Simulated assay, not measured.
Amino acid sequence: MTLTDSIRVLGKDHPNTLASRNNLAGTRQKAEAVQHGSTATSATEAALQKPSTAD
């Protein structure tokens, strides 16, 4: 059951609906962290590949 279905069938304050909202928020947060992590990794790799200008 999707969150939308849960809200429609059970109501917005039903414990299962609230659990679904919580699970969705956690999943979104993890996906964001992965996205930011891959961006940070790419930036680090790019910085490591630049030739050093300090001699």
Score class of each variant (00 low, 15 high):
P51Y: 09
A19W: 07
M1P: 07
L24E: 11
S6E: 11
G37A: 10
G26P: 00
A19G: 06
A54D: 14
G37L: 08
A25V: 03
E32A: 11
L24A: 09
A40V: 00
E32K: 13
E32Y: 06
V9L: 11
A33M: 14
A31P: 00
R21L: 14
H36R: 15
G11S: 08
H14Q: 07
T27R: 14
K50P: 01
L24C: 02
E32M: 05
A43Y: 00
G26F: 09
H36Y: 07
A54E: 15
S52T: 05
T44Q: 11
A40L: 10
A19V: 01
N16I: 04
V34E: 15
S6N: 05
L3R: 03
E32V: 06
T53K: 12
G11T: 02
S42G: 05
L48H: 01
S20P: 00
V34L: 13
Q35F: 10
R28C: 03
T17F: 01
R28V: 02
A43I: 05
S52W: 00
H14V: 03
A25M: 07
Q49R: 13
S52I: 01
T4R: 13
Q29I: 01
G26A: 11
N16V: 03
S38V: 04
D13H: 06
E45H: 02
Q29T: 06
A31V: 01
L10D: 07
N16T: 04
T27L: 10
L3H: 08
L24I: 08
E45K: 12
N23P: 00
P51N: 11
Q49A: 14
I7E: 14
A46N: 06
K30S: 09
N22A: 11
D5H: 03
H36P: 00
R21M: 15
A47Q: 15
G11L: 02
A19Y: 08
S52H: 03
A33R: 13
Q49V: 00
V34F: 11
G37N: 12
T2K: 11
I7L: 10
L48N: 12
K50A: 14
S42C: 01
V34Q: 15
S38T: 04
H36F: 02
L48Y: 00
Q35L: 13
A40D: 12
T2C: 01
H14W: 13
R28A: 08
N23M: 05
D5Q: 15
E32W: 02
D5S: 12
A33T: 08
T41Y: 07
V34C: 00
N16M: 11
G11P: 08
A25N: 11
L24Y: 05
S6Q: 11
K12A: 11
T39Q: 12
T53D: 02
L24F: 06
V34H: 09
D13A: 13
T39G: 01
T44M: 11
K30W: 06
N16H: 12
N16A: 12
L10F: 10
L48Q: 14
L3F: 01
L18W: 13
D13N: 12
A43H: 03
N23H: 12
T4G: 08
L48A: 05
H14C: 07
G26H: 12
P15I: 10
K12L: 07
K12G: 09
G37I: 02
H14M: 06
A46K: 13
T41S: 00
L3I: 03
